[in-house]
Design a protein around this nucleic acid. Structure first.
Lengths: 200, 200
DNA sequence: ATTGTAAGCGATTGATTACTTACTTACGAG
DNA sequence: CTCGTAAGTAAGTAATCAATCGCTTACAAT
């Protein structure tokens, strides 16, 4: 069955995301991808000249969808105080809907072997941090968050917590309700961001 | 140069930790290990019957040293309120001294391919969580930490934050001062643990 | 209808992988 | 001194990997 190049490329990207959710990086050979899509292994190289270009396309896909979601919420309706916890929940829901994403973004091929892919992931994280930093600053301006808070540092720590959480979820083979953990994160973070620091 | 089996096994474990710090999982072939130790590649299999048994030994090494450190501080001198931030600092210092550890513990071979290794890592994390949970409960008993805090959930979130932080450090090729981040973590976590939650 | 383009495939290649086999040799206990 | 054990090696194996090559064929625009 013959399909257009663009269509096949999308199928390949989706196949990689699905395979990553099931088996991780080890099951991500061009052979496995070809089998999943239903084409011969060499045909994969008609659409992507190298294997890394496939992963690049996948990371682009993630970047577009994830950052699109985050920015939509960060600049959406309601106060910053309301939007930040909503962002946590929505982001964890998004990841829960695509369990392959963390296994790809945390994989060695991405951030140890290939400097190019590593840079792409770095850009996604930097964009995320910048967006959330802005959101926190907005909350400080509206008086919801403490003014003496380092907005960028806080954004980075929240990202670290999400990543650690998602990693445990991925290691545990998705055996707990990830979006439900958003509340727990907010329970820990909110008091530190909203209450004045207690004297010594 | 002929050495005893035990001596060689220790050399091999150290070689793996060093290689992981330098190049990650991809540079971790039995050939690379043999070259680093200074023996022929098949000789590696005299000391470990399979490659996974090498990784198992490495994880055991990490488990012994890391948990030894954590438990020593968790049950050491001073109030729980003092010991918890000290534990964060000391742990990040330990990891900074052994940059290969996160790359090994977060590698795919460990927690996707081999269920046995995965289980070992899971036990380390479970032990860490249990120890810190106990420490937090102690702090609650002495009145330093809020009584309405879920100790285990908090311990898990702190671990998640450490893991996310260490992962960013590892991805960035160790380009920032990891132990210095302990203060930032504590700045975020402490207010949430010590101050009463603000009313709605 | 013709034809250029691009998707598709079978066969293969060279590199790398963990691991085996058959043999040698160092060395400590008796 | 000897001799069994265990550390060492060179050579090789089967598997898997990304990527190449030569060829075919579907299809859309002319």
């Amino acid at each position: 069955m013959r399909k257009s190049g663009e269509e096949r490329r999308e199928e390949i990207v989706q196949a990689v995301i699905d395979l990553a959710a099931e088996g991780g990086q080890s099951q991500l050979s061009t052979q496995a991808i070809a089998d999943r899509v239903g084409i011969a292994q060499p045909t994969v190289f008609r659409h992507f000249r190298t294997r890394d270009l496939i992963l690049q396309a996948v990371i682009d896909w993630i970047s577009r969808h994830l950052l699109g979601l985050v920015m939509a919420i960060a600049t959406g309706n309601g106060s910053a105080r309301e939007r930040l916890p909503r962002l946590l929940t929505r982001q964890l829901e998004f990841i829960a809907r695509h369990p392959g994403l963390p296994r790809l973004l945390f994989s060695e091929r991405v951030h140890q072997d290939s400097p190019v892919l590593k840079q792409s992931v770095g850009r996604v994280m930097a964009n995320w941090t910048r967006t959330v930093t802005e959101l926190i600053r907005e909350g400080q301006a509206e008086g919801s968050f403490r003014a003496d808070l380092d907005a960028e540092e806080t954004a980075r720590l929240i990202l670290a917590m999400i990543q650690g959480l998602v990693m445990r979820w991925s290691i545990s083979d998705f055996q707990f309700d990830l979006p439900a953990q958003a509340e727990a994160v907010w329970r820990l973070v909110a008091p530190a961001m909203t209450s004045p620091s207690p004297g010594p």
